[in-house]
């Protein structure tokens, strides 16, 4: 079986200050230094791929990333977990691109490396949290799409059964291969630790680099399909942490007042 896992390198949102300023041009923090990480749901996707490789002998994992040179770190991390191949499509602009453009680039790259049995993506990237690329990619590739997968329950040559999240529960869903799955987290798909020996070896392995022109994509085209052109404004929501004490003469009065506040905030 062949699996392509799409990995995005992002500024670690948890490691950014609360007074974060985002540059609307690049979509990235305005500060010049911030820690980078693999988008968390992409890590869950990678773990699912690794679990399949553990179970199904002969499984080949291709880690694919579209990003700047620094995204090579992301691919090294996948290599240190024994992904078989790493492919970086070099992003030629620092400008923010929308999901349509990214999905087109990824689709071309996947066609170039050979259409696999399974394409895995995180359900959304942890920076802009849009959650569209995986689904658009399925359409670009003409694949059926299974969203919000937490586990692969079984796999034979032609079909796979996924456990997927639905509103208020979960379901088992069977899909014909090839298929694209977007992955959500659960306790079974936390990315494993690498062995130090494999981290060392990963430094020596090759990351294949593809350019947009090698994929037959015109960078200018990508620019033109920027839907983020509709981006009007970025602002930091003000959060008040001053405690408002609920007034009242009796517990009953306070309970009513509290309920009123919660209703106002649409919490009950």
């Amino acid at each position: 079986m062949k699996i392509v896992v799409c990995l995005k390198q992002i500024p670690d949102p948890d490691a950014l200050p609360s007074d974060l300023v985002i540059d609307p041009e690049t979509g990235k923090p305005a500060a010049n230094k911030y820690p980078l990480t693999i988008s968390p749901f992409d890590e869950n996707a990678l773990e699912i791929a690794l679990q399949l490789k553990d179970k199904v002998p002969g499984t080949q994992i291709v880690a694919l990333s579209y990003g700047p040179e620094s995204a090579e770190q992301t691919l090294r991390k996948a290599l240190s977990l024994l992904a078989d191949e790493a492919v970086l499509v070099k992003k030629e602009t620092s400008k923010l691109e929308d999901g349509y453009g990214v999905a087109r680039v990824l689709a071309s790259a996947i066609r170039k490396v050979g259409l696999p049995d399974l394409v895995l993506c995180g359900r959304q990237a942890g920076d802009w949290d849009a959650g569209v690329v995986g689904f658009l990619l399925a359409d670009e590739l003409g694949l059926p799409c299974v969203g919000f997968v937490s586990q692969v329950v079984s796999a034979d040559g032609n079909r796979m059964v996924f456990k997927t999240e639905i509103e208020g529960g979960w379901q088992f869903l069977e899909a014909e291969l090839p298929v694209l799955a977007t992955v959500t987290n659960d306790e079974t798909n936390v990315l494993r630790m690498a062995k130090i020996k494999d981290i060392m070896m990963a430094h020596r392995r090759k990351v294949s680099v593809l350019t947009l022109s090698e994929l037959g994509i015109d960078g200018g085209d990508l620019e033109r399909c920027r839907v983020h052109g509709g981006l009007k404004e970025l602002f930091t929501p003000v959060s008040t942490t001053v405690c408002e004490f609920i007034a009242g003469e009796s517990p009953a009065e306070k309970a009513l007042a509290l309920l009123g506040k919660l209703r106002e905030a649409r919490l009950v």
Binding site: P11, P13, D14, L16, S18, L20, V21, I22, G126, D127, W128, D129, V227, H228, G230, L231, K232, E233, L234, F235, T236, P237
Partner: peptide, 19 residues
């Protein structure tokens, strides 16, 4: 039509003009 959505874990909000 103006659409507001959170980015970066809600630390920043982005406003889009609908197409």
């Amino acid at each position: 039509i103006l659409l507001t959505r959170p980015i970066y874990g809600g630390k920043v909000h982005a406003v889009f003009a609908a197409r």
